[in-house]
Design a protein around this nucleic acid. Structure first.
Lengths: 137, 137
DNA sequence: TTGATATTTGAACATATATTCATATATTCA
DNA sequence: TGAATATATGAATATATGTTCAAATATCAA
């Protein structure tokens, strides 16, 4: 992590020289952006996890699993969708280390794999509560 | 006792009878899942935000903005992509209340709109560090 | 006003993705 | 062994999504 001062407040009055000529660019800011965002591969590695959470069905699966492990047909019954579809989603989530599974006889019980997952879900719910209908058109 | 025993984990308060006949379902678990996940609309409302973070380009924009506000051409230069593309993405993020903007002359400066956004990004990065290469094939 | 810059917007296209259907695998039990 | 159950998997398809291109706004400066 790159240490830095509190962002936000600074107005750019005298900051990066002035502004943009011919399709601008404030060099200072671009440089700082690189510090914050790292290389492109950081986002490339991180995005798939968020994308996985971005599907309502998968998200619902994960929210449900907060209550404890469930088998595939439980999850299918819960969602009201096919077991095949659920299985595809679970494989997807498993490949991303978001869920793990445990076999018991013919059944496979799935559960959340990582505490971070719960944390992210929680913050997401907070954000939802916080910015209720605040979207800009 | 009630017939058979249940060698299952006790993380759940009670066992759901045994398992599944003809495409199972543990009623207790399904009920608890409903408690945890709420109605389908919860996931429907929450998913778009995660989906927005699920695109590497948009994610990179948000990571960059952690360093402070930036104008469109800064962001385009930073990403190495077109300003049109960036603008489309920013509109998307703005509609979800993930970023806000401030005009200064001809330029528009974008910044993160919500502390939750930073929090989610941070946890995401943590998760990435934690589960490095742990994905199951 | 006119011209220039910064950004937005809509449509088109090419790619990605979720679901379905049919089939395959794994495990238990007779 | 074979039937039955629970889940996985591959292919096909229909839909969603990101980027590009062309054109439209908005602001400033002369």
């Amino acid at each position: 992590m790159t240490g830095k001062k509190s962002p936000r407040e600074e107005s750019l009055s005298e900051n990066d020289g002035e502004a943009c000529r011919v399709h601008c660019v404030h060099p200072e800011r671009v440089r700082r952006a690189h510090d914050e965002a790292g290389s492109a591969s950081v986002a490339e590695e991180l995005a798939p996890m968020f994308k996985a959470l971005g599907d309502p069905t998968r998200l619902r699966l994960l929210l449900a699993l907060r209550g404890g492990e469930m088998c595939v047909c439980d999850l299918a019954a819960f969602l009201g969708s096919s077991e095949s579809s659920v299985s595809h989603h679970l494989r997807h989530l498993r490949q991303l280390a978001l869920v793990r599974r445990r076999r018991e006889g013919q059944m496979l019980f799935y559960s959340l794999d990582d505490d971070h997952v719960e944390a992210i879900l929680k913050i997401g719910l907070d954000h939802r509560a916080h910015s209720e209908g605040r979207s800009k058109r």
